[in-house]
Computed example of a mutant assay.
Amino acid sequence: MPFRLLRTMVFAVVCLGLGAGAHVFGGGTVSGDAMVAAFWMAACAAFPVAGRERTVHAILPLLGGLQLALHLLFSLSHAGSPGQAVAHAVHGSGGLVPDLGMLVAHSWATLLTALWLARGEALLWALLRRLAVRLLAVLLPPVPETPFFAGAVAEPPVLRSAVLRHVLSRRGPPMVVETS
């Protein structure tokens, strides 16, 4: 359970950092209440899937959906009132309806972050598997190499040297060729 919570919190922080950073970079502001709400929204979405290793095919849709939800949350909190939110949406000034540049920026950031998180997932789980193998090797007693009831062991046959017909021996120093 603590491992699942730790992975959930890391995902929520990365998702919140990506969403808030993109929103501020795009000229918006993010209030503290919106940050707290966004963090818990991301954490609640990530907790059910944080129990086992996830690939980019599971991380990307979750991250993309959360980025859309965070964009809407930050845009609504930035507008102040529902009337201002409608005005932002109607006039297209970076409100609820994103322009093409914002969609491209969100898409690239989401894709790169999903690939980064998937690589981190793979490395984390590979490390945990290696640690588990090492821990089992330390904790479990070694298996005896001889069976309990070792019967008479046959002696291996004596090897004879045999002269092979097609072997040419070239051992020793090179021969000196004398020329006169």
Rank of each mutant, 00 (worst) to 15 (best):
V10E: 10
A12E: 00
V14E: 05
V14S: 04
V14Q: 01
C15H: 01
G17H: 08
G19N: 07
G19S: 08
G19R: 01
G21W: 09
A22G: 05
A22F: 04
H23N: 14
V24G: 11
F25V: 12
G26R: 02
G28T: 10
G28Y: 06
S31E: 14
D33H: 07
A37V: 14
A37Y: 04
M41V: 10
M41G: 03
A42W: 04
C44I: 11
C44H: 05
A46S: 13
F47N: 11
F47L: 15
P48F: 09
R52L: 13
E53Y: 06
R54E: 02
V56M: 05
H57Y: 14
I59F: 03
L62M: 06
G65Y: 09
G65K: 07
L66P: 00
Q67M: 11
L68Y: 05
A69P: 03
L70C: 06
L70R: 00
H71V: 07
H71N: 04
H71T: 03
L72C: 02
L73H: 01
F74P: 00
F74D: 00
F74I: 02
S75I: 00
S75R: 07
H78L: 09
A79M: 09
G80Y: 13
S81M: 10
Q84E: 13
A87E: 15
H88K: 12
A89R: 03
V90K: 09
V90E: 07
V90A: 12
H91T: 15
H91Q: 13
G92R: 06
G92I: 05
G92A: 12
S93K: 14
G95F: 02
L96Y: 07
L96Q: 01
D99N: 15
D99G: 11
M102K: 07
V104I: 08
V104K: 07
H106F: 09
S107P: 02
